[in-house]
Design a binder for these strands. Structure first.
Lengths: 236, 236
DNA sequence: TTCCCCTTCACCAGAAATGGTGAGGTACGG
DNA sequence: CCGTACCTCACCATTTCTGGTGAAGGGGAA
């Protein structure tokens, strides 16, 4: 009778990404939700999603790069608390256009999203989408949001555990000196300053930057620092 | 009768860090827990804690820099899921010494911690500490862990909302073009490439980079991109 | 021992980034 | 209507970074 416990048990046995997809579909049915989305982006840019939207919409979304204008994605990345879609900023024209498109793709008018963060900059969104009026939606939210927050976090943990899931994408570790160099660069020092701080010649410093760049496949210093940062290889 | 709901309501009204401290004490009493700790560290190194340990222990902990050897802190930073302290690695000598000291300071033998992550690299630990035998502790954990996970996340959200809390350090928002520019730079493009991608002259591009730098107080492009990244102003 | 990685240093020419200043236009809120 | 913020472009001297190559000693793993 306890949906939450049932769902947790269903999740506990999941061992593959396919099972997560099945889980999401089951969750949708058990809670009588129109659509559910779990979407994770790890620091390396690797993505994984388990969702109940139509393939057409998903393809269109990816194809058009809608994640760059979707107020849900943009709004949640800076947030830490679950948020109702109504509270987001839909005033910009691209946002309104996107809203119209999503509606024609069959998405409901109501929704909320739970931002979730993991180690090394992993970020995931767990979203609920529903076609409903404001009153019923408010009631639904009040009743279900606690359960869904818990499930969202459990699901994220599961997704991170699973081989090949959003948690993969190992980047070769940086040597201590390489970390020092990139960290000081990220802090705003130029090469001369970093070399001085590290008490090495600028030539030596360059070797570190370049070997770090090489390891991460970065095309220049800015890229290397950005990559190290998003991969959690350095902390500023 | 529903403790979880009561606690959520108690949290909802909190407006200051002092109230969080009071909340933690109330939570301890309501759930009959020996000790509770909420401890947050933001990306800038700013710290905040609300806890029920004795002042002596807290001072000693800070003074001796125990966060560097405490297996709870060290173990949780790499994790994303709640963990029982028994499952941590206590084999190193400093860890065992630390354990002995904590026991003489009145801490219980059982505990678990919930790692929580927020935007911009914020990291918090919500820990429960109890003096109990294994059986009763297992039962307690099973019954309460769900509630406490939720409360931990609510509490972190609250702490981040509160003025002067772990979330301080607002940075002026970037304009869309500034974000585009920094994002493309973070992705490894050089200025020529970014200008081309954005369909603007390199001169114009420079204005964006410089105004972004100015807004964030960054001393060069690398610094600007790193700052934007760590503050969640751009997403790569 | 051999091999690989880390740390350290040097030289150099050419490519790229920087800093500062000036100036046109649009858009929005007070 | 005015101020402020945003978007766009230009010029130029100077500093800084990049790419490529070569080399030596230390440490750990196979």
């Amino acid at each position: 009778m306890n949906k939450l416990v049932d769902m947790q048990e269903a999740l506990a046995s999941a061992r593959s990404l396919e099972e997560l997809q099945t889980f999401v579909e089951g969750l949708r049915d058990v809670y009588s939700i129109d659509n559910l989305v779990y979407h994770s982006v790890n620091a390396s840019g690797g993505q994984y999603a388990a969702l109940t939207y139509s393939n057409e919409w998903v393809e269109r979304y990816i194809d058009k790069g809608y994640e760059r204008i979707d107020p849900v994605v943009q709004g949640c990345y800076k947030r830490f608390t679950p948020i109702d879609w109504k509270a987001l900023d839909w005033s910009a024209k691209p946002s309104r256009d996107f809203l119209g498109e999503s509606a024609s793709a069959g998405l409901g008018n109501q929704g909320f999203s739970i931002p979730i963060r993991g180690p090394s900059g992993q970020f995931a969104l767990f979203s609920v989408n529903q076609k409903d009026n404001d009153d019923r939606w408010a009631k639904f939210t009040e009743e279900r949001v606690s359960d869904l927050i818990l499930i969202a976090h459990y699901m994220n943990e599961k997704a991170l555990e699973i081989e090949g899931g959003p948690n993969q994408g190992p980047v070769r570790a940086l040597s201590p000196r390489e970390k020092d160099a990139l960290t000081l660069l990220a802090l705003g020092n130029n090469r001369a300053g970093v070399a001085e701080a590290l008490n090495i010649s600028e030539n030596t410093l360059r070797v570190y930057i370049e070997s770090a760049r090489f390891k991460m496949g970065a095309s220049n210093t800015v890229h290397a620092v950005a990559t190290a940062l998003t991969h959690g290889l350095i902390v500023v």
